[in-house]
Amino acid sequence: MSNADRISEYIVREFLPDLTPSQLPHDQDLLGDGAIDSLGVLKLIAWVEHHFQLAVGDTDLDPENFRSVAAIDAYVARSQSAPVTGG
């Protein structure tokens, strides 16, 4: 299972439980379309940190990093290839 598939699977389970992961396009705007609210973003960040074993620093809290499955996937890839600068 790719990272993107894992992310999709989590988002669907937590926020859109009537969907199947295949019904969630990877470029779907999760924030603009109200799929995830502001508290949901916190949960999502906590899950990303735990699941991918990385620390989301203050400078990474930009919602753009969590706007879509593709954006989160890219963020995780960037974070895993760079030294952790957490904060």
Partner: peptide
């Protein structure tokens, strides 16, 4: 229709925090 469709419908018509 899925919950995603309905949330999108609401987001376009309601203030943030009302979805």
């Amino acid at each position: 229709a899925t919950s995603l469709d309905l949330k999108r419908h609401c987001s376009a018509r309601l203030p943030r925090g009302w979805v």
